[in-house]
Simulated scan of single mutants.
Amino acid sequence: MVRFPGHGRSHPDDIVIGPLDLPGHVDEALAVQAVAFGLGPDEVAVRRQIVLRHMTFPGARAFGATVEGHLVGFVYGMPNDRTHWWSTVVEPYLRARGHDDWLDDSFVITELHVHPRYQKHGIGRALITTITDGADEPRSILSAIDVESPARHLYRSLGYQDLARQVHFPSAVKPYAVMGAPLPLPRG
Rank of each mutant, 00 (worst) to 15 (best):
M78A: 04
F74P: 03
Y93E: 06
E68V: 05
L71Q: 08
V67G: 07
Y76S: 05
P92G: 10
F74N: 03
L71C: 03
R95V: 04
G59L: 01
D81G: 01
V67D: 12
S87Y: 04
T83A: 02
E91V: 03
L71F: 08
E91F: 02
Y76P: 02
D81L: 00
A96N: 12
V67W: 02
V72M: 03
A96V: 06
P79W: 00
N80F: 00
G77F: 10
S87L: 04
T88V: 10
P92H: 09
R82M: 01
P79D: 01
T83Q: 15
Y76I: 03
S87G: 13
R82L: 01
Y76R: 06
R82D: 02
S87Q: 10
H70F: 00
R97P: 04
V75R: 07
E91P: 03
V75D: 14
R95G: 03
L94A: 08
G73M: 05
R95Q: 10
H84D: 12
H84K: 11
V89A: 06
A60F: 02
G59H: 12
R95N: 07
V90G: 06
G69W: 07
G64P: 09
L71G: 07
P92I: 10
V75M: 02
W85D: 15
R82G: 00
L94M: 10
V89P: 11
E91N: 05
L71I: 12
M78K: 15
G73D: 08
A60M: 04
G77R: 08
G73R: 08
A96S: 07
A60H: 09
F63S: 05
R97L: 05
E91L: 04
N80L: 08
T66E: 13
R61T: 09
A62V: 10
R82Q: 07
F63A: 03
V67C: 13
W85G: 10
G59N: 09
L94K: 11
S87I: 06
R82V: 03
P92D: 06
A65C: 11
G64M: 04
G73F: 11
S87A: 15
Y76G: 02
F63Y: 15
R82E: 12
H84L: 09
A60P: 06
A62S: 14
Y76M: 04
V90W: 07
E91A: 10
